[in-house]
């Protein structure tokens, strides 16, 4: 089971800023281990965010995104207490969903 994300969402002047910190190795597939064998690529490919069950953000990622990825984006609307849900899927098919309420 992948480790949880940290999500923070703050609403201000009709805009909700969402900051997400994910737990993921984001292995590029270009690195080698100590015996010289290539470490297979393992990274998040898809990220989706929902505000009150409506999709507001979709992203596709490559292996160039840093390990333990950070993501910040802004959505229109949203008020304190609304639910924000973030989901990622990696190239091995693993997925993780976490949620927070807007502060």
């Amino acid at each position: 089971m992948p480790n949880p994300m940290k999500i923070r969402a703050t609403a201000k002047d009709g805009v909700t800023e969402v900051k997400v910190l994910m737990n993921h190795e984001m292995e590029t597939g270009f690195r080698k281990d100590s015996s010289g064998a290539v470490i297979p690529a393992w990274f998040i490919t898809d990220v989706t965010a929902k505000l009150k069950d409506k999709v507001v953000m979709q992203a596709q990622w490559g292996a160039s995104v840093s390990k333990n990825p950070f993501l910040a984006f802004k959505i229109k609307g949203g008020a304190a207490g609304d639910k924000v849900v973030v989901t990622w899927t990696d190239n091995k098919g693993e997925t993780r969903t976490d949620e927070t309420t807007i502060a």
Partner: peptide, 12 residues
Amino acid sequence: DMLPDVTTRLKM
């Protein structure tokens, strides 16, 4: 529903 303003971290 989104503002065109995104932030992330990349490997270089």
